[in-house]
Design a protein around this nucleic acid. Structure first.
Lengths: 240, 240
DNA sequence: GCAAAAGTGTTCGGAGTACACCCATGT
DNA sequence: ACATGGGTGTACTCCGAACACTTTTGC
């Protein structure tokens, strides 16, 4: 299997740890002669010649997490002629034996998962969760891609119930509220939020409560993608 | 300026003529020796080496319509390894001097405009409006791209006021209603629809009425993108 | 017993939905 | 005068927003 050297996928992998929204980044270290630097990149890779884009994104995600069936969505494609022309990027590509002046199309995907269950090594490189509001300057045009992914995520989470993808299988209503508050950078009234959530038939209360917490244990819920698929309705709702 | 031979943009140009939703298609005729066929393609083109994707899409649109400032949105990228392997597609590419086994990434854009004001010729090829529900088998993977564009359009028009982009600058409320009914394949009650629309401050009534119609002339309105930008709010609204 | 988060009800205003008739114009 | 689409109001229900106190657990 041969890699296509001008098509790549970049995965913006979002994770929620109960407190903050984070993104999975990979160290990029080059030290060769007089040049030496370390910075961070999004996770991504070139696609194989006979590989569809979605499959390539799935593959990257699987290599990093060992997980399949992760929420993954293509959100935008980046191919600006100057997207790889920062000094360090050119050195990195040359060191890697690639032509830095070859134009590379990068198809952006974002993924949602809970921050547990993730391998913190990838192809010998160090992998880390970084809170999205503490991300510094990234390699290539990855700041742009991350910003764009965040926008798409915010836009989508308003209209579709994908917030649950960032939580463990069993979760509490307070956790749901926190996910929405953090992603949308706002606060909701607890009672109103719970009334809203109570109307969602795809949020299923379990016969189970939190354990070992130093306060009244919360009811646990799960999200049913099936029930959502069967009950959703979308109609005219264009915003005033 | 040199064309990049593996990156292209395809524009799904939607038009509304007051009655139906249409898409702009281009004839593709090949007659060479024993093979000869005519079919239709979406409008698209390769990008220039130093040209950003959005600029390429704008350029295609400008060449076809002579218009700038058209609503244009990147919606999805297509790069399946088999996307150009139908028999006619291979012949067409070979005739055009291109390598049919080169993998080509196509970045999909959709555009919205009213069906007047369009040049019906493009690079010597015939251009035509076809109602979206009467589109037959298209070249390449263009049926897939069209379906995907329609999905994106439906999805977007529910949440954002882009229906007006399909109407002339001055329009009536009945025309607005028709656009939404046709794209969403539903019907709305006239009084309720108008009450809803009355709340949208970005729909501005003009001091002008229809003329020359054989019924009570309708009030004309215009859409103000500025007012929309200033008054829109998006909050938690995930659908039950 | 105290700290910490869970859980719960009411009121008000505004939006969604269902529904039927008169009006202004061209021919 | 008639055909055509334009334009309007009411009643009911449901949702969104504002707002404060009690409960259960671990320590």
């Amino acid at each position: 299997m041969e890699l296509n050297n001008y098509i790549s996928v970049d995965c913006v992998i979002f994770g929620f740890d109960g407190e903050r929204l984070k993104v999975l980044l990979v160290d990029r270290t080059l030290s060769e002669g007089s040049t030496s630097f370390t910075d961070l990149t999004l996770t991504g890779n070139h696609v194989y010649e006979n590989e569809p884009l979605d499959a390539a994104a799935d593959r990257v995600l699987f290599e990093l997490t060992g997980l399949t069936n992760i929420y993954l969505e293509q959100f935008k494609t980046f191919a600006h002629p100057d997207r790889l022309t920062k000094e360090n990027d050119i050195k990195w590509l040359q060191h890697d034996g690639r032509d830095p002046f070859q134009r590379i199309v990068s198809v952006g995907y974002f993924a949602l998962l809970a921050t547990d269950q993730v391998t913190l090594e990838w192809k010998g490189r160090n992998v880390q969760w970084v809170p999205v509001d503490e991300v510094g300057e990234l390699a290539f045009d990855h700041n742009l891609i991350l910003e764009s992914a965040l926008l798409s995520l915010r836009n989508k989470i308003i209209h579709e119930p994908i917030g649950f993808e960032l939580l463990p299988q069993k979760f509490t209503l307070s956790q749901v509220q926190k996910v929405y508050e953090i992603i949308l950078d706002t606060e909701f009234d607890k009672r109103n939020f719970r009334k809203k959530v109570a109307r969602m038939k795809y949020l299923i209360p379990l016969d189970e409560k939190q354990k070992g917490v130093a306060h009244k244990p919360a009811q646990l819920y799960m999200f049913s993608r099936d029930v959502y698929g069967n009950t959703k309705k979308d109609l005219l709702n264009f915003i005033v």
